[in-house]
Amino acid sequence: MNIFRFLGDMTHLISILILLLKIYATKSCSGISLKTQELYALVFLARYLDLFTDFISVYNSVMKVVFIASSLAIVWCMRRHRVVRRSYDKELDTFRHYFLVAACLALALLVQEKFTFLEVLWAFSIYLEAVAILPQLVLLQRSGNVDNLTGQYVFFLGAYRAFYILNWIYRYFTETHFSRWISCVSGLVQTALYADFFYYYFISWKNNSKLQLPA
């Protein structure tokens, strides 16, 4: 494992911790898209079924369990927690996420490395992860004002993607048979979706002002 992959995993983990912290400390999930969180839970469940079939390392297995557990916990809190669920911006979170799921499943059936159950699910999870942030970005755009922790959450998610791209570039030059084009193309799409958000994030950071997205 190279440093970029490790930093990518760590920023991913930090983003989830920030989200849990926000929900735990403020007992509020305002500004957070339940649809995006449900998509992430689905992404992790579909991709990490290989916990039962392939063993890569203790690190990988532990991280997989952490990602599945934390994403389910967040969805549970937003849907079921007595206090937290009241702050959910339901009327702003109207993205039709089922269409994303259907489109990604169709694409996974057409384009995958091998037509087996686990490989189709794996490709599905990669495609879905690439677009899972869309409901969240739409919600932020609609609400305009972004609170600090929500801004940090999306920033660290974006950083995770950026580090994974550096990781693939590194692996491309250091490994002889590195050709995971499904991951790379999807990863590039996913990172591109953050470009706009990053732009406004850096503007607000430079001006030392509150993060605001244009309507």
Binding site: R5, D9, H12, R47, D50, D54, I56, N60, M63, K64, F67, E113, K114, T116, E119, W122, Y164, N167, H177, S179, R180, S183
Partner: peptide, 10 residues
Amino acid sequence: NTEAEVHDEL
């Protein structure tokens, strides 16, 4: 190479 890659990333 038609073999599926080992998915060693998260």
